[in-house]
Amino acid sequence: MIQGFKEFIFRGNVIDLAVAVVIGAAFTAIVTVVVESLINPLVSLFFAADSLATALTFTVPTLFGGTATFSFGAILAAVLSFLSVAVVVYFVFVLPMNKARERSEAKKGVVADETALPTETELLIEIRDLLRAQQGQAPRA
């Protein structure tokens, strides 16, 4: 039992996951600062983002004499926050990394030609035909 646990811990996946969590936490801090320092002030130029969470609320009476408050503004604020984080991550990190990777591959002479690769169906047909040939059967069309 302990041997299995050692193999699990030292397999590499756990170490990779731990590194990913640490890097993810550091990455979250960077994205949060960019959103709070750049994106939120840009959004506040167009409308009062601080009051959005409390602006679109509806209060309705409940069956037991109380009230229920629906805060659609908070949902909209969360969606805007998510979209702003996604925009920052894509344009500041993903897009430049993809461009750098493309330039690096172009320098190495690696050209990604996906049209030359066979489809999954073609590969399965080829495997089937090879298996039949091994068994001495004639391949079907």
Results as ranks from 00 to 15, higher is better:
residue 30 I to S: 04
residue 70 F to P: 03
residue 105 E to G: 01
residue 105 E to A: 07
residue 130 L to H: 02
residue 91 F to E: 10
residue 96 P to T: 11
residue 43 V to K: 07
residue 58 F to Y: 11
residue 30 I to V: 15
residue 35 V to T: 10
residue 15 I to M: 05
residue 37 S to N: 10
residue 113 D to W: 03
residue 112 A to S: 05
residue 86 A to R: 09
residue 25 A to L: 14
residue 84 S to G: 15
residue 30 I to Q: 07
residue 117 L to D: 09
residue 42 L to T: 07
residue 35 V to H: 00
residue 55 A to S: 14
residue 103 R to P: 01
residue 64 F to L: 10
residue 91 F to Y: 13
residue 89 V to W: 00
residue 114 E to C: 08
residue 111 V to Q: 04
residue 21 V to R: 01
residue 110 V to S: 04
residue 16 D to H: 07
residue 120 E to N: 06
residue 138 A to V: 15
residue 27 F to C: 03
residue 4 G to P: 01
residue 50 D to P: 12
residue 61 P to I: 13
residue 66 G to P: 02
residue 56 L to P: 00
residue 50 D to A: 15
residue 8 F to S: 13
residue 62 T to P: 00
residue 50 D to S: 14
residue 67 T to D: 09
residue 141 A to L: 13
residue 72 F to E: 00
residue 2 I to C: 02
residue 32 T to M: 09
residue 137 Q to C: 07
residue 41 P to V: 07
residue 60 V to E: 13
residue 77 A to Q: 15
residue 90 Y to V: 10
residue 104 S to M: 12
residue 54 T to K: 10
residue 45 L to F: 09
residue 6 K to F: 09
residue 81 S to D: 14
residue 79 V to H: 04
residue 3 Q to Y: 05
residue 28 T to K: 11
residue 135 Q to V: 11
residue 124 L to A: 14
residue 105 E to Q: 15
residue 85 V to Q: 06
residue 23 I to N: 03
residue 43 V to Y: 01
residue 49 A to Q: 09
residue 51 S to V: 11
residue 141 A to D: 13
residue 46 F to C: 09
residue 24 G to Q: 06
residue 133 A to N: 04
residue 14 V to R: 00
residue 112 A to I: 14
residue 124 L to G: 04
residue 109 G to W: 04
residue 96 P to L: 05
residue 109 G to C: 09
residue 131 L to D: 04
residue 63 L to V: 13
residue 34 V to G: 01
residue 52 L to T: 11
residue 36 E to L: 12
residue 49 A to G: 04
residue 14 V to N: 04
residue 134 Q to Y: 14
residue 94 V to I: 15
residue 71 S to R: 12
residue 81 S to I: 02
residue 116 A to D: 11
